[in-house]
Simulated assay, not measured.
Amino acid sequence: MNDEQPPAKPGWEPLPYKHLPRPNYFPAGLAMGTTFIFWGFITSWVIFLVGLGLFTAALAGWITEILHERNERK
């Protein structure tokens, strides 16, 4: 990865370099799991369990991704 930035235009101050996390689908999975959990309260226990599983998997994946990225920077 190249940490260099293109030169700023005259009179402009360049932004400091800031590491951005990799994009992933875990936040969307967490939102879908939450939706299925609440939908399962209204409809059926099967949908509730699917939502709970999706919520748990997405949360665990997101936490793992955060910890992995934190260890990479050290």
Score class of each variant (00 low, 15 high):
residue 1 M to G: 14
residue 1 M to V: 10
residue 2 N to T: 04
residue 3 D to L: 15
residue 3 D to Y: 10
residue 3 D to W: 07
residue 4 E to D: 13
residue 4 E to M: 12
residue 4 E to F: 13
residue 4 E to V: 02
residue 5 Q to R: 11
residue 6 P to K: 08
residue 6 P to T: 12
residue 7 P to T: 07
residue 7 P to M: 07
residue 8 A to E: 05
residue 8 A to W: 01
residue 10 P to V: 11
residue 10 P to W: 09
residue 10 P to S: 12
residue 11 G to R: 01
residue 11 G to T: 07
residue 11 G to C: 07
residue 11 G to W: 06
residue 12 W to V: 04
residue 12 W to T: 03
residue 13 E to Q: 14
residue 13 E to N: 12
residue 13 E to W: 07
residue 14 P to I: 04
residue 15 L to R: 11
residue 16 P to L: 06
residue 17 Y to L: 11
residue 17 Y to I: 03
residue 17 Y to A: 11
residue 17 Y to H: 07
residue 18 K to P: 00
residue 18 K to C: 09
residue 18 K to D: 08
residue 18 K to V: 14
residue 19 H to I: 12
residue 19 H to T: 10
residue 20 L to W: 14
residue 21 P to E: 10
residue 21 P to C: 05
residue 23 P to V: 03
residue 23 P to S: 09
residue 23 P to K: 05
residue 23 P to I: 01
residue 25 Y to S: 09
residue 28 A to Q: 07
residue 28 A to V: 01
residue 28 A to S: 03
residue 28 A to I: 02
residue 29 G to Q: 01
residue 29 G to F: 02
residue 30 L to K: 07
residue 31 A to D: 01
residue 31 A to P: 00
residue 31 A to L: 12
residue 31 A to R: 03
residue 32 M to K: 01
residue 32 M to P: 00
residue 33 G to P: 02
residue 33 G to N: 05
residue 34 T to I: 15
residue 34 T to S: 15
residue 34 T to R: 00
residue 35 T to A: 15
residue 36 F to H: 04
residue 36 F to G: 01
residue 36 F to K: 01
residue 38 F to R: 09
residue 39 W to K: 06
residue 39 W to L: 14
residue 39 W to I: 08
residue 40 G to T: 01
residue 40 G to E: 02
residue 40 G to D: 01
residue 40 G to L: 00
residue 41 F to N: 12
residue 41 F to I: 08
residue 42 I to E: 11
residue 42 I to N: 10
residue 43 T to A: 14
residue 43 T to N: 15
residue 44 S to R: 07
residue 44 S to A: 14
residue 45 W to T: 07
residue 45 W to L: 06
residue 45 W to M: 11
residue 46 V to F: 13
residue 46 V to M: 11
residue 46 V to W: 14
residue 46 V to R: 08
residue 47 I to D: 05
residue 47 I to T: 10
residue 47 I to Y: 03
residue 48 F to V: 03
residue 48 F to I: 02
residue 49 L to W: 15
residue 49 L to Q: 05
residue 50 V to A: 13
residue 50 V to F: 12
residue 50 V to E: 10
residue 51 G to W: 05
residue 51 G to Y: 05
residue 52 L to Q: 09
residue 54 L to T: 12
residue 54 L to I: 11
residue 55 F to D: 09
residue 55 F to Y: 11
residue 55 F to S: 10
residue 55 F to V: 02
residue 56 T to Y: 05
residue 56 T to D: 04
residue 57 A to W: 03
residue 58 A to F: 01
residue 59 L to M: 06
residue 59 L to I: 09
residue 59 L to N: 07
residue 59 L to T: 13
residue 60 A to D: 00
residue 61 G to P: 00
residue 61 G to Y: 08
residue 61 G to F: 08
residue 62 W to F: 11
residue 62 W to A: 10
residue 62 W to M: 10
residue 62 W to G: 04
residue 63 I to V: 14
residue 63 I to F: 12
residue 64 T to W: 13
residue 66 I to H: 04
residue 66 I to V: 13
residue 66 I to R: 06
residue 66 I to C: 05
residue 67 L to M: 13
residue 67 L to Y: 07
residue 67 L to I: 14
residue 67 L to P: 00
residue 67 L to F: 13
residue 68 H to L: 12
residue 68 H to Y: 14
residue 69 E to P: 00
residue 69 E to A: 10
residue 70 R to I: 09
residue 70 R to W: 10
residue 72 E to T: 06
residue 72 E to A: 10
residue 73 R to D: 09
residue 73 R to L: 15
residue 74 K to H: 13
